[in-house]
Each structure stands twice: as structure tokens, then as C-alpha cells.
């Protein structure tokens, strides 16, 4: 029983990292209408930004996270300006191809600047706190805490601010949002900035949990996509639920099969969802064409 609880704790940790990645991806997916394959590598970039602030400038870790989130937001808005905006009129698939290009450019620039080796935010081993037979690393509490705070902030932002409401409206129905006079270009910029900031936080927490390496975000992209599809594209609340479900299932699967297959578990869930409820678990229809 303790073992299962332990795995559930790991599932919560992984799930909250996926949630932060999935909210950003689902917003850009819903509002800009394209699957951004550079999202995972944006996570990696954010993690390395924080590494730079931590060790390059010697800032405290929490400040490094905030600075990295702002840098990530700026980077995403710039990438949109240079790459995606000129291509936006050419349809979602052209944007998708471009995002694959952006993904490789980001990842290999990281490899060029920081090298292929692993990096860590902290040196040395953290001794786990023992509580009711569970082993809890202090970092895990940090991850859960930061994720919870950010999710609450996202909720307040989406519910109570004008920009947040406009974003939900655009993700829901673009034409209707435009008819009501929402300044779509400005919202697009906000979407990139907020999506990237959350995604940077996810990368940072992933780095805190394990280590930083150039493929770290790419390896998490498939589970993040699975969470987005599970929750329904464009739905931030769906992404939160989807992220927790995917993270939890991935960790629970290690009780039965090799941990090497964790990403495959996410993929299998995604395919099943595509087959039985292609609009996500919370709604039907919408995704099926012919």
C-alpha cells in the first residue's frame, strides 16, 4: 500500500509538471489553431534560462525562476513575430512544419551554448523527509507548491481579467470572438507570453526534479500532447485534469511495466481517447472530420 501511495506521490509531481506544460500548449493550440511542436523545447530553453540566472548571475533559485519565465515569454513573443506571424495566413499545417523547425533550432542552440551534458540546479543529495512511511523529497514539495500557485493564478487570470476572458472566448470560438470586437492580435501576444511562462515553469520544475539536458522537454512533449487531447484542445481546465491523469497513469504503470515505457503509456492513452472520444473526455464531437 505504501508503495502505491509513493507512486501516487510521484504521479502528482509528474502530473503537475505536465499540467503546466499542457495549459500553455492547449491555449496556443486553441487560439492559434496549430499544434506547436516547439513547446517541449521551449520548456528546455526556460530551464536553461533559469540555470543561467542561477549560476551565471548567482541569483537565488526562486528569483531565477521568475526571471526565466519572463525571458521565456519574451522569447516566445519574438519567435511568433519572426516565424509564425508571417506564416499565419498559410494555414495550420504550414505553422506546424515551421514549429518543428523552431523546435530543432532551439534544441540545438541549447546544445551549442550549454553542451550535451547534464546540469543540475543543486549539487549533492537531498535527504527525503519520512512521513507515514512515504519518502518525500523537499524538492517534490516545492514542485507541488509552485505548480499549485501557478494553476491558481491561471484560474484567477482566466476567470476575472478581461484578457483572460477574451482568451477563453477565442479558444472556444474564434469567429464569435472576433465579431464581439476582441483585439485578437493583442490576445495572441498574451497567449504566447502566458503559455511560454507556464511552460518555462514546467521546464524548471522538471529540471529541479531530475536534471537538465537538451532533450528533456522533447521527451515530455508526447505526454503533454496526450494531456491536451485528453482535456479537449483549447480548454485550460481540461488540460489541468488531463495532465494529472496522464502523470498519474504514467507513474502507476511503472508498478506493472518497465519505467522505460512511461512515454508510451501516455501515447496509448491518447490513441484510445482519439478512438472513443476525439473531442476530449469532457465533450464530444468537434474533432472529427470525414
Amino acid at each position: 500500500m505504501t508503495e502505491v501511495l509513493q507512486v501516487i506521490l510521484y504521479g502528482l509531481v509528474l502530473g503537475s509538471i505536465i499540467v503546466l506544460g499542457a495549459i500553455g500548449l492547449t491555449l496556443t493550440y486553441g487560439i492559434l489553431n496549430f499544434a506547436n511542436f516547439a513547446h517541449g523545447d521551449m520548456m528546455t530553453l526556460g530551464a536553461y534560462f533559469a540555470l543561467f540566472y542561477r549560476f551565471g548571475l548567482g541569483w537565488p533559485l526562486s528569483l531565477s525562476l521568475v526571471a526565466a519565465m519572463i525571458s521565456g515569454a519574451v522569447a516566445a513573443v519574438l519567435i511568433d513575430k519572426v516565424v509564425y506571424r508571417p506564416l499565419r495566413s498559410r494555414g495550420s499545417i504550414t505553422l506546424l512544419i515551421a514549429s518543428v523547425g523552431v523546435a530543432l533550432i532551439i534544441r540545438n542552440l541549447i546544445r551549442f551554448v550549454w553542451g550535451p551534458d547534464n546540469h543540475y540546479y543543486r549539487r549533492g543529495i537531498q535527504f527525503p523527509i519520512r512521513w507515514m512511511g512515504l519518502r518525500i523529497k523537499p524538492d517534490h514539495l516545492w514542485i507541488l507548491g509552485v505548480a499549485l500557485v501557478l494553476v491558481i493564478l491561471v484560474h484567477v487570470f482566466l476567470r476575472y481579467t478581461k484578457i483572460g476572458k477574451a482568451m477563453r472566448a477565442m479558444a472556444d470560438n474564434m469567429e464569435l470572438a472576433m465579431v464581439t470586437g476582441i483585439a485578437t492580435e493583442r490576445i495572441v501576444v498574451w497567449t504566447w507570453a502566458i503559455g511560454a511562462a507556464l511552460c518555462v515553469a514546467a521546464g524548471f520544475l522538471l529540471g529541479l526534479d531530475t536534471q537538465l539536458f537538451p532533450d528533456m522537454g522533447w521527451n515530455l512533449l508526447l505526454p503533454i500532447f496526450a494531456a491536451v487531447i485528453l482535456g479537449g484542445i483549447g480548454s485550460p481546465y481540461g488540460a489541468m485534469a488531463g495532465g494529472l491523469i496522464i502523470g498519474m497513469t504514467q507513474e502507476l504503470s511503472t508498478l506493472f511495466i518497465s519505467a522505460a515505457y512511461k512515454p508510451v503509456v501516455a501515447f496509448v492513452i491518447m490513441i484510445v481517447i482519439l478512438l472513443v472520444r476525439p473531442g476530449g473526455i469532457f465533450r464530444t464531437g468537434g474533432a472529427v472530420k470525414l
Binding site: F34, A35, F37, S92, I93, L96, L222, F225, I229, P263, V264, F267, M270, I271, L274, L275, P278, A287, V288, K289, L290
Partner: peptide
């Protein structure tokens, strides 16, 4: 399973199968 769905779903599914 994927060819009846949106074209970007096929993209995600193919990268999934490759991985």
C-alpha cells in the same frame, strides 16, 4: 484510428508511433 480525424492528430499520432 487517425485518418478520420483532424490532420494535426495524424501528426501527433505518427510522432507517437515513431517514439
Amino acid at each position: 484510428p487517425t485518418l478520420r480525424l483532424r490532420e494535426d492528430y495524424l501528426a501527433i499520432a505518427t510522432i507517437g508511433i515513431a517514439e
